Simulated scan of single mutants.
Amino acid sequence: MSTKLPSRLVRLFAGLALFGVSVALMVRADLGLASWDVLHQGLADRTGLPMGLLVNGVALLVLLLWIPLRQRPGVGTVANVALVGLALDATLALLPPVAPLVGRIGLLVAGVLLNGLATALYLGARLGPGPRDGLMTGLAAHGLPLGPARTAIEVTVLAVGWLLGGAVGPGTLLYAIGIGPIVAWFVPRLTAPAPVPTGVTSPCPA
């Protein structure tokens, strides 16, 4: 795969747009959301603001927490703040609610699979992590164990979102169990090779 910047930008923007679409599919499934999206939906229910707008707003607030952690955002980080919510709101505007349970289950499964694909695409672009991922790595860099820190944040966000009225259900569990293996399968297949530093010649394949 090409290591040129345009190719990586296409990978990045496609991943972020598809991520927003995947969240919209899970919203329309109405069977439970990922922890952060439970929070976003709960905030949307309480404020009346579009969910996508709140996705971007929360991402911006999380990005501000990078400052004391001395984390540096990349192009992908800034694009994440701007694009995911837009794609989410656009998809929700085009995709009406679905009534039959079999259709909702189909949307949920498609949403989780697409979310894993989208995550692998934007991570594979190597242009900077999302705000929430950067928060985790920043905390880890300052001595907090990554696993417990991530679990604590995810559980807290989920609990607050549920109290605000966000959808918690079997989809929440499916996402928690399934997203890791899905991303792990896609990442090695969709990650752009590391850029070769200027002045360094790439070794020829054997």
Rank of each mutant, 00 (worst) to 15 (best):
S2L: 11
P6T: 02
R11D: 05
G15L: 10
F19W: 10
V23A: 13
A24W: 10
M26A: 08
M26N: 15
R28I: 00
D30M: 02
L31F: 06
S35T: 08
W36Q: 15
W36F: 15
D37F: 03
G42E: 02
D45Q: 15
T47Q: 05
L49S: 11
M51D: 02
L53S: 08
L53F: 04
V55H: 02
N56M: 13
I67V: 15
R72N: 02
R72I: 09
T77Q: 10
T77Y: 06
A79L: 08
L83M: 13
G85M: 14
G85K: 14
L92M: 06
P97V: 01
V98T: 11
V98Y: 03
V98N: 04
A99K: 03
L101Y: 06
L101G: 07
R104G: 05
L108D: 13
G111Q: 14
G111P: 15
V112R: 14
L113F: 11
L114A: 15
L114P: 14
N115W: 10
G116I: 10
A125F: 00
L127F: 00
R132G: 07
R132W: 10
D133Y: 09
M136R: 03
T137P: 00
T137K: 01
A140N: 10
A140Y: 02
H142C: 05
H142E: 04
L146Y: 09
G147I: 15
R150F: 04
T151H: 05
E154M: 03
V155K: 05
T156M: 10
L158C: 11
A159Q: 01
V160A: 09
G169T: 08
G171Y: 11
Y175T: 02
I177N: 12
I177R: 14
I182A: 07
V183Q: 10
P188D: 07
R189V: 05
V196T: 14
P197E: 11
G199Y: 13
V200L: 14
T201C: 10
A206Q: 11
